[in-house]
Amino acid sequence: MGNDMLQMTVIIHTRDSEATLPRLLESVRWAEECIVVDMESRDRTLEIARHYGATLLSTPIVPRIDGIRNDFLECGHHEWVFVLDSDEYLAADAEQIVRGLLERYGETSDAFCIPRYNMIAGQIIRSRSWYPDHQIRLFRKGCVRWSDSTHKLSELQTAQERLHKLEPPGCLHIHHENYTSIQQFIDRQVRYALNDIYPEEGFSFQQYVAWAYEEFDFRLDEKNDGELSFALATLMAWDRVVRGLIHWERLGRKDSLRRAYSLPITTISRYPEGVFPGDVEELRRQAEDLHQRLQFLESVPGVKLLARLTKSVRREHRKTKDRLKRMRQYFRGKSATG
């Protein structure tokens, strides 16, 4: 290995990954150390990893990949670790960008939150529910842990201010080819749902149904992603209901399911009025903008038409402020109890 290579460890988890692994390994050739953690692959995965000079480690098949990620985070020699999945890869200028990031923020940060492009059924999905899809994948060894679940975000163990978030456009991205078709998407969703862990207490099928509505609303973005967005939103909503039924059966089918369909769904939604935490900022901006417009209109001397306009803006401003106040109270209460 040359000395000019970046002193960093790349960790990749594989399972029958011959189709995508070469692209990924090619894209991280500049990293000094590459560790492939393989789960009993039956194809050419190991041969490919050897060809690229990766260190091979093996692990038995587990239902949830995130549960075993922590076991291998300390295996590398280097201070900085980049964790990637076998269906992900980096761009041609990644080396230059990563070098720049570590030089500039390496002292003050323990981890980098990197946006991710998700490609589903031959299309890069740009709706807010799929993009920028920030992931903590580049971090100082020992500073990040995963929880035992599928596709849950990793967590920084030091302090939130030590996390450097990369904001698109024009920054490093992880490129993720999630699913080549809708059928593959369905297959994986079912597998993840069946393999997930469900709590022993607090089951409510109503809540799963409410989440399904939320998911649909959250995921649907036909403007950005066309008809595929409708298909994905439907599948994500369906996934919530399926999970509810799996949970119900695992707890011995004790609760009634029927109740779920006799309720006004939105009343038990996690996010009342269909506003998500990320939207509060937008609402705040909206209120500020209305306030400025109001100030301007009030400064113009007495014209009748303007007075009417001012009245309507004032009403809108009051409404937005009330809504913002309610949302803030709600999220404050939620974080206090959570």
Partner: peptide, 26 residues
């Protein structure tokens, strides 16, 4: 060169086309 929606290999089905992606505008 840092297209907001990256080009995909499938967008250019001709096997004689090779893609080189830059995340940052170069």
């Amino acid at each position: 060169n840092a297209s907001l929606r990256p080009y995909l290999a499938t967008s250019f089905p001709d096997s004689r086309v090779r893609l080189l992606r830059f995340d940052a505008s170069t």
